[in-house]
Design a protein around this nucleic acid. Sequence first.
DNA 1: TGGGAAATAGGAATCGTTCTCATTCTCGGA
DNA 2: TCCGAGAATGAGAACGATTCCTATTTCCCA
Lengths: 148, 148
Amino acid sequence: MTPDLHHAVEDLLRAAGQRYTPKRRDLVEILRKVGRPAATQDLVEGRRGMPQSSVYRNLAVLEQAGAVRRVITEEGVGRYELAEDLTTHHHHLVCRSCGAVVDVTIPARLERTVERTLAAAAAAADFEGAVHRVDLIGTCRDCRDVTA
Amino acid sequence: MTPDLHHAVEDLLRAAGQRYTPKRRDLVEILRKVGRPAATQDLVEGRRGMPQSSVYRNLAVLEQAGAVRRVITEEGVGRYELAEDLTTHHHHLVCRSCGAVVDVTIPARLERTVERTLAAAAAAADFEGAVHRVDLIGTCRDCRDVTA
DNA sequence: TGGGAAATAGGAATCGTTCTCATTCTCGGA
DNA sequence: TCCGAGAATGAGAACGATTCCTATTTCCCA
């Protein structure tokens, strides 16, 4: 499915002097199916059963090629998602209890305003190539129910 | 200095059924002096030379009491800063290379707009008690110079 | 002043991630 | 088609930040 995605990733990898191997294709496919940041552990334990060394190594390659992005959450575990170039610019809702992540988008108009303001702030602090990260930390329904 | 800060922290701890011990005071004082998110390691190695078990334990207590906040960065290490209730609402500029963090604030007007929009998004996804996190990831001058 | 709960210090244990290396695969050239 | 060099893989060791365990010390207050 979505051959465009895989073509795009292949191009990215090739540009980085890397091959688009079956393992890498598997990872990309899983991330596409999941549709939101997936924990590294989930990828290791996925039905495909990929060795963790391969998961970590290939995610690093894909990240360097700009195909995936590492998402930082409150939990101690790493999560990865497809790069925004391959999907759409978005933000995250992170559950502070279970670490679950949901993608959200905000109005383009506000997005632009934020973008412009933050770019100015970055320039003032002499930071280069800054991208913004807007996340929401809260408690998801499931975790709320458990506590209650 | 700033007895108000320590009083506030003491109140927070007491409300949480905890004591404001010298160690905890030291940590708060260091965080105040640093003025930006400090890596756990820095606190361990600080001139006071606090055992790491004490650093971690007390930071956890302080965090639970709402006196400090854990900041997530791209690096694998934890950073802590005084809670916003004790300082002011702000955001971070994070260097993707060295992990350095600089505090920044954005115009109150934009802040409110972002706050309102994100609150709506959180409600739509059924997330409760959401706070936003707006960070900028870039490369600081020092790291840029090294690469160049 | 004494008893008991909380805090501390040191180190062991844990866990996600990175590294190492021997083996396997892949691709381009002969 | 076959070969050889470089790339990728897989298994496990190594690493580092954090958490956990436990004996000892400190603090509160009766």
